[in-house]
Design a protein around this nucleic acid. Structure first.
Lengths: 338, 338
DNA sequence: GCCTCCAAGTGTTACGTATAACTTCCTTCC
DNA sequence: GGAAGGAAGTTATACGTAACACTTGGAGGC
């Protein structure tokens, strides 16, 4: 009988089934067709079940030289957006026998900022959000296959990129506001150095500038409700004509803008329109519901994982941005008076 | 020179430094004092740096028979609550040389529901939220050290438990509402079979029953804004006197209740009071700001990890529930008329 | 001058798995 | 009846690391 104190190994299973360890490996690895008889295979499977055998992953990983595990580096877990990205990536990964380990780029996790130290797991590759760029120096150190999410295709050091078509989303927002008649816009920008936010600023400016008489002012805020509230209040109490619409870099900032507007006694959308970007649950929790751009987070994660699998298999990753769509709700309306 | 195509091993480092592989292991493992001279040690470290050596974790894990990696099983990533739990757990883990791998119990991730298959990594232990109970059968299969978060201390099969003092939080909510004069309460309950929600129902009922003339009705809803809205609308349009307060099992449900009340033309808190539980960012994003119970998610995670470390080292985990605190905001007021 | 002891290493092994290479036995075919 | 070939396994090995047991050369003690 096997030693009960320690986990059973494939050798224990072999002994119990009266075969060699190699046979166990063949059977459980599903490579036994034509090499082991059906009856023996069943005997092995039964023994494995009886002993509660689980293969030692460390040994398997060492032997195979790969782990079928990838790391997903995200900026934070505070919104369901990256939860969606994980879900999509994990679904594709599972279909290919891969696992996904999550590394939330830390804010205050402490000294071990190294994702590899933190995740301990041996990895085959990495998918990283550009917003978590601070964690990436370590990653480029190892030369693990890398896929960047929402990152500048030109400046990614040759890593494959998968992008949402944020530029088009901002374009849709701008057209929507212009069509409603807005000309003076406040851009509530995320105070985070990341390509995905630079794109918003650039595209909004370009689109508005195409129409004469428009004006875009910019306020910067950290991505938090309170930070956005403060920045919005400051921007709206400053000198000059009040903007008729606020374009926010994401929904969380928009929620902060809502709070500022309530404090200032301004009504949405009567006095001022507000738009977001993400379409989180938050967008329909606030009143009025937020006009925003829906991002398909799960598809984003799926595409990221598929791109990484392509890199791992030496194929070229699928190209083309992921489409996004404006969702018009109650927070936008024509400006009151021209 | 080392083969450039494949990752350098400790043997490559040894060769470069002109020492044996054993010496490299001693130096880099920080066990060289009195065994290797300072100059040799420095030479080894330099060689390791030059080659960009990273130890092969699979080999180390196999050799040591442990991975210094634990799995954190959470029900979902859709709120910042479990992000906080992760942050706390990861902080403590890092201080002890451990890594934390996240397994969000899937809703629709697909066939590989097995956390071990999904996380691939070899694990030393598991911390699991009771809300993710569906994933736990596999976990009990292996006899990995296990710590349960927010789980019935009596029914946890001997696993260590770490709990928030939810009962006390509900008690505080009930006292607050009773003091304001509320007697007819609707309990908007999460339609999830979990101890942490059972506690809420039990404690609320007990506390209200202590005062004569009180009445607690219950509505069940899935934990989503829309589900909560629907359930609340149904409950409030049913026959019988309208409740003067709604006690929600968490903040997300409260946000749904807000939407239902807006649709029904009822004002908060004038017509009806609402309370939540969690104190998410959402709680201050909605209008009026939500009276709720603040849970210290990070401390929860820290305590969970410390308990698991205790189990791994054969010590007894710290006992005692984690205190929580009522935060009174604008969503509660005395009922209009008695 | 010989024994002891310590510093500074090296040789070797085991962890558990997957698989290439080999063996053995039985059937089939000419 | 002997060779060929396939079915059903087994034997042996390597993956990269950590650590135990051993070696060597010199310093120190009496």
């Amino acid at each position: 009988m096997a030693r009960s104190s320690t986990r059973p190994t494939s050798r224990d299973v072999a002994h119990a089934a009266g075969v060699s360890q190699a046979a166990v490996s063949l059977v459980l690895g599903d490579k036994w067709r034509g090499r082991v008889s059906e009856t023996t295979a069943e005997r092995v499977r039964q023994a494995a079940r009886d002993l509660g055998y689980r293969p030692n992953l460390a040994a398997r990983n060492l032997r195979l030289g790969r782990t079928r595990t990838v790391l997903l580096v995200v900026p934070a877990l505070t919104t369901e957006f990256f939860a969606g990205v994980y879900t999509g990536a994990a679904r594709v990964a599972a279909a290919h026998g891969f696992g996904v380990v999550l590394y939330p780029s830390p804010e205050g996790i402490g000294p071990a900022r190294d994702p590899f130290a933190s995740a301990q797991a041996a990895l085959d590759g990495v998918i990283a959000s550009s917003m978590a760029a601070d964690a990436l120096t370590d990653i480029r150190g190892d030369q693990l296959p890398l896929v960047m999410l929402d990152s500048d295709p030109a400046g990614s050091l040759g890593a494959a990129t998968v992008n949402l078509d944020i530029a088009d989303g901002v374009r849709q927002v701008a057209e929507h506001l212009l069509n409603l008649g807005h000309r003076r816009v406040l851009h509530l920008a995320a105070d985070v150095p990341s390509w995905t936010f630079e794109v918003r600023a650039r595209e909004l400016a370009a689109r508005m500038a195409a129409v004469p008489g428009t004006e875009v002012r910019t306020a910067r805020a950290p991505i938090s409700i309170d930070g956005a509230r403060t920045a919005t209040e400051a921007a709206l109490t400053a000198a000059g004509p009040r903007p008729t619409a606020i374009v926010c870099d994401d929904d969380k900032l928009a929620a902060g803008a809502y709070k500022a507007l309530r404090r200032l006694g301004l009504r949405i959308p009567d006095d001022i329109s507000v738009t977001g970007l993400d379409d989180l649950a938050l967008a329909t929790a606030i009143d009025p519901e937020l006009t925003t751009v829906r991002l398909d987070a799960e598809l984003f994660g799926e595409r990221g994982m598929r791109a990484l699998l392509a890199v791992l298999e030496g194929r070229r990753p699928e190209s083309g941005d992921i489409p996004v769509q404006l969702v018009v709700r109650g927070s936008t309306a024509p400006p009151r008076t021209p």
